[in-house]
Amino acid sequence: MDLKTPLSEKDVRRLRAGDIIYVSGTLITARDRAHKRVLSNCRDIPVDMEGLVLYHCGPVAKKVGNEWIVLSAGPTTSYRLEDVEADFIKCTGVRMIVGKGGMGEKTTDACMEYGAVYCSFTGGASLLAAKSIKKVKDVFWLDMGMPEALWVFEVERFGPLVVSIDAHGNDLHREVIDRAKSRV
């Protein structure tokens, strides 16, 4: 399935855990420090993220002239953001989060309440991810270092992504872990 930003609440509520999708449009990266900075003053952030995709990623980019070229942009472990993600969804209005490894109950609840989904991109597949980035539209907060900055990418058919947490309370990673526990 192919989706385009800005994503509406209806777009994401249609998705179910286990769906395989590709997304095109605008994607924002934020890791630990960018989450902290966004949440420290939510009304004054450099990008309107309503309906956009948040990507847990610390890219490797190189500046050629005035243009940034992204060399490598795989997902980072999402669980580190579990404590802050629900507030991030609430204050920015992002509709899709992409990362790896899964998230927790707080994020699952926020996805249900505000209408958002969490998708997994294959960890380590950083070159395939970089290939789908057509342009670096902007970058903010480089003072925190390249991986921690807030990057704004234009992407084309970014994926394949697996919907892991849908807007109906389903969490594929959790299901796999619960089933594994019952097997041992």
């Binding site: 395989i20 490797v60 380590g124 597949a125 290939k131 697996v162």
Partner: peptide, 29 residues
């Protein structure tokens, strides 16, 4: 399983690309 196969295919495609282009396999070097 379709999802598992897709993960491994993505991994193998990425590994091939890294070798061809002489770039790091993963952004976490």
């Amino acid at each position: 399983n379709e999802i598992a196969r897709l993960q491994l295919k993505t991994i193998l495609d990425n590994v091939k690309l890294a070798r061809e282009e002489g770039l790091p396999i993963c952004q976490d070097t």
